[in-house]
Design a protein around this nucleic acid. Structure first.
Lengths: 211, 211
DNA sequence: CTAATTTCGAACTATTTGGTTATATATTCG
DNA sequence: CGAATATATAACCAAATAGTTCGAAATTAG
């Protein structure tokens, strides 16, 4: 069963479906949801108008697919940045650094589809999706903090939940500043300092610190 | 000179100019720049189409005026929230609390025109304006931190610049989460914890702490 | 090779949108 | 009151936009 999907019957498509969706991602990312017209998508995706409607549906449907694919891809990369380093500090710094780097990548739009543009889409399903993505993200960060506790890198009463949320908020802030043109270099320094901040022991733990 | 501006010559306007701009603010705030049509503005501002063009210009011009007025108003309120309390902690907490409250106000759109929608406007002048507003905001926070140093509330080597930027980033994060529907109550708690975070002494200062 | 199937390319239609024009209305000045 | 001025209302127009239709093209099945 090398070819599970036998070649379909009619004229073959001149475009790659997932490739076209990736191009659509760039279109939405750079122009925002409301700023995108069907013609923008036709031009950007390299798919003819009728094929676009037949294969993907209307703008909203395309955006939803784009959003979900983007979230999966980006979520995996963010998780990798978070989980690859061994030390907790490198983890958090790596996560924030990744946020900055992907938000200031040359050749791509600035910012982030999930953080900067999707929240402005006036659509209940999009909102639900973003809510879930957000809680999922901070849950992962919280788990990473907890692993830091078991590794003895932070005290056992470290406020893992609060700090996890704060990391996501700081990442949002860095990403929004990328959008308004703050240079990567500045943001990378800020990311480093943000990581330092969220790893500070809380006051009641200071007494127990061995310095 | 009670009436400095003698009544103008022709038919009087049926709308108040600044009032109309405030209504326009709500329109842009709730629909985003690209989501707004001229008809939306005509309906929302209560100004007829030709008058709208004659008095305010096109959509971009209206948005620029809206943006500047909004920034001034909101900036003043944020400054008040920051500078009214005497203690540093109440200041920072008050600032973040204000960000959350204004981003979750009933009867107004969620989020913030400056933080959530203006950054998506693809316009050089808007970008410059936002950059300046951002640096101005963190400069004020930095000053407030410095006043905290002279008041002896934080050590003299407190990283004022970094913490000021972090407060703005946290505020951005809270505001963006307001936009995706995170409830006010949650955000208020997060704001409180964020204030606590940014007031933690840095590690090298802990040795000097008198507990 | 022929028929069936699917996509492609171009044109088409109805609607929305940005911006203007024309006429009526309200006000001040003389 | 009548002329001048400025705004309001409605209608208008051209361009952009969303979504569809139709014939040509490319492929497989028989």
């Amino acid at each position: 069963m090398i070819q599970n999907t036998a070649r379909p019957r009619g004229r073959p498509r001149s475009f790659d479906e997932t490739g076209a969706l990736e191009k659509a991602t760039q279109v939405f990312w750079s122009k925002g949801y409301d700023g995108v017209t069907i013609d923008d998508l036709v031009a950007g995706m390299g798919v003819g108008r009728p094929s676009l409607y037949a294969v993907f549906g209307d703008k909203r449907a395309i955006f939803l697919r784009v959003l979900k694919a983007y979230a999966e891809r980006k979520g995996a990369l963010a998780a990798k940045a978070l989980l690859s380093p061994m030390g907790l500090r490198d983890s958090i710094a790596g996560f924030l650094r990744y946020a900055v780097e992907s938000a200031t990548e040359k050749g791509s739009a600035r910012g982030c589809l999930l953080i900067c543009v999707a929240p402005l889409v006036n659509d209940a399903e999009v909102q639900r999706f973003l809510q879930n993505a957000a809680t999922g993200g901070s849950a992962r960060l919280e788990r990473r903090f907890r692993d830091g506790i078991t590794a003895g890198e932070i005290p056992s009463d470290f406020p893992v939940a609060a700090r996890a949320i704060q990391v996501t908020d700081l990442a949002r802030g860095l990403t929004m500043r990328a959008l308004i043109g703050t240079p990567r270099k500045t943001l990378l320094k800020d990311a480093e300092e943000a990581a330092e901040l969220v790893l500070l022991p809380c006051l009641k733990a200071i007494g127990k610190l061995r310095l």
